[in-house]
Design a binder for these strands. Structure first.
Lengths: 197, 197, 197, 197
DNA sequence: GATGAATGAGTGTTCATTCAT
DNA sequence: CATGAATGAACACTCATTCAT
């Protein structure tokens, strides 16, 4: 059969990504099978391969795409800020906004690293390190500037990221807390964690 | 065929559990196949089934066993303590000790919840809630006693657990930090997170 | 891999049914394995599953299909007849024709009822009852019309069906008896069984 | 562990046979597994092998035993009779008595022939032929003696056996018909089938 | 592009059978 | 005799992947 009316390749691709992210989020990469994925976007398995390379390669581009977008958004948000305290506030807000708005992406970006091939793993880990490095630079700059006095900057960075990323494990958009309140609470927690008052 | 000399069922079972935990930790439950698991303990697949009921049921008992042991150890460690600040210190130490000594168990206990059947999930989640409830009680008692002033006890509990549990994502036994120093650092971070000085 | 030239799904399905009937006839449902069945129709096991749902479900549709066809053919053959004696003659002829021409189908339709799931069993048994009911109606009508005097109509029906169906246990198409002679012999036996001269 | 008190080998063997017959009757030989059979007689699979040779060989001795017992009982029952009509009456009664009292044995004796190895099959078939031959001799003697006039003695024998054996497909001990009435009904049917009166 | 049909390697699971204890 | 534990071959079924149409 021919191509259905009003459907174009880019739309289909987007639909596939979305469906894949959802399935991986709920069942994990290994447990996602291409038949179900194809069905989600009203395609046969055969047709899926007109859009997707291989399951494994697909996971790679998916995770890489997610973290690249994260980094891109981060740089946009942080542009122009220089003062460490301000940068920290902004980072926390950004991180929470992304991790609540893009809960599923973030979740699989953390969980499915082990499903990557070694090469894919290297790429994604490098991008993650860039993200972590961003926060670590803020902490280091603030330490130098006397904004906070940390025993161990690296541990503080790890701790702060655990704190923030943990949100994606329990946050529900329809939960008790508004996103705004959540951000303010965690900005305070972050400050306290770094020993600011 | 037949039973080899000097082989004992309980020992075999222990070996299987250990090997399974390791494989699930490294590759995930879905990616663990019973042939490899059997090979780990020098058994044929058929023999594995003399010890393990079904892959799925096995995962259930595995995770349930882990968290039951965690709870048991927790109660032992916390016995006799009443003062909130003391209990918090002890909880942090206990959590980190367990999460560094039993890194693999803890990791799969967090990651593989989604691989559980609905019934198994209910059981394990209930046990996890008991653990979280323990910390929340500490925080609430300390709040009443004026040890700390939290904006939101529940969020503080979630934040604290994220902070502590996150350790299992990066901790290496042969890393830069001794376990003792790690505990002291995190005890301080915890105090600061709660706004104590 | 990929689809070979000139292959058609419906043809394949027919071939599978035929091969399955033959294997079940010779070895029984339990003893039929899907690898051999696939090989019979020059398919791999995987490909078999493009046509067949599950072994169990397949048996269900197979047996149901056989008896539905039997019923359909019966109604075609009996159409227009009213006189009990005539209907009996025709029924006997029809039954024998079907049970010799479709020996294998008939055989597994009788033997493999116990391999059906409870739900499948209900369905098939209901269809069988329809067939038996047809004969019983003939006998009852003839009884009323005075064509024969039976002690017990139900027992006569069971006896008659045993008599006729038993043929499929020993009939060989290349045997001593032509189908025509077989039918005439059994029509006489049936009449005698009912006490007609 | 040692041998339980009050249990002896012959009893165990009898229990195994009985359980096996029942399981084969209900599920078929292929579907009967030795674990369940062992459980039926409160034994472990390993222990079963102290009593039973191999599954396949066991089936052989089982079926052979059944038909040998049938033949033995037949000869006992027929002893002393010479007159064909009398012998026929007695045969019918005997056959029905056996096929109702030993329904399960009879059923598997007919159904599971195809599960036998070629050698076992030869043996059992030979014994069955002896049984069929007995009836055929009666029919032939009666034909000679003018008790009945059959078109085809062999077909009459096959028909008569189908008629009688078919009872085991529907007979229920707690059914509408007493065994006595059943026998009288079928004795009449048999006479009519042979064209007497 | 879309589809149905094909493939082969793999997966969990069962089962008859054996044997040291 | 009874048992638990071992084995290996088999089984139904799944799944990523390919390709003629």
């Amino acid at each position: 059969m021919g191509r259905p009316v009003g459907v174009n390749g880019a739309d289909t691709m987007r639909a596939i990504r979305k469906a894949a992210i959802h399935r991986i989020y709920r069942y994990g990469y290994e447990a996602m099978n291409l038949r179900d994925l194809a069905a989600d976007v009203h395609l046969s398995v055969g047709s899926l391969y007109n859009h997707v390379p291989q399951k494994q390669a697909f996971l790679g581009t998916l995770l890489e795409g997610i973290i690249r977008e994260l980094l891109l958004d981060l740089h946009t948000q942080m542009a122009g800020l220089t003062e460490p305290t301000q940068r920290l506030e902004r980072f926390v807000r950004f991180h929470i906004e992304w991790h609540t708005a893009r809960k599923e992406e973030v979740f699989i970006g953390n969980m499915e690293l082990r499903s990557l091939s070694p090469e894919q793993y290297q790429v994604v880990i490098a991008l993650r390190k860039a993200y972590e490095g961003h926060l670590e630079r803020i902490l280091r700059d603030g330490q130098k500037a006397g904004c906070w006095k940390l025993d161990d900057v690296r541990v503080a960075r790890l701790a702060l990221l655990s704190l923030l990323t943990g949100i994606s494990n329990w946050y529900r958009p329809d939960g008790r807390l508004t996103q705004g309140r959540l951000i303010r609470l965690y900005q305070r927690l972050a400050r306290q964690l770094l020993g600011m008052h």
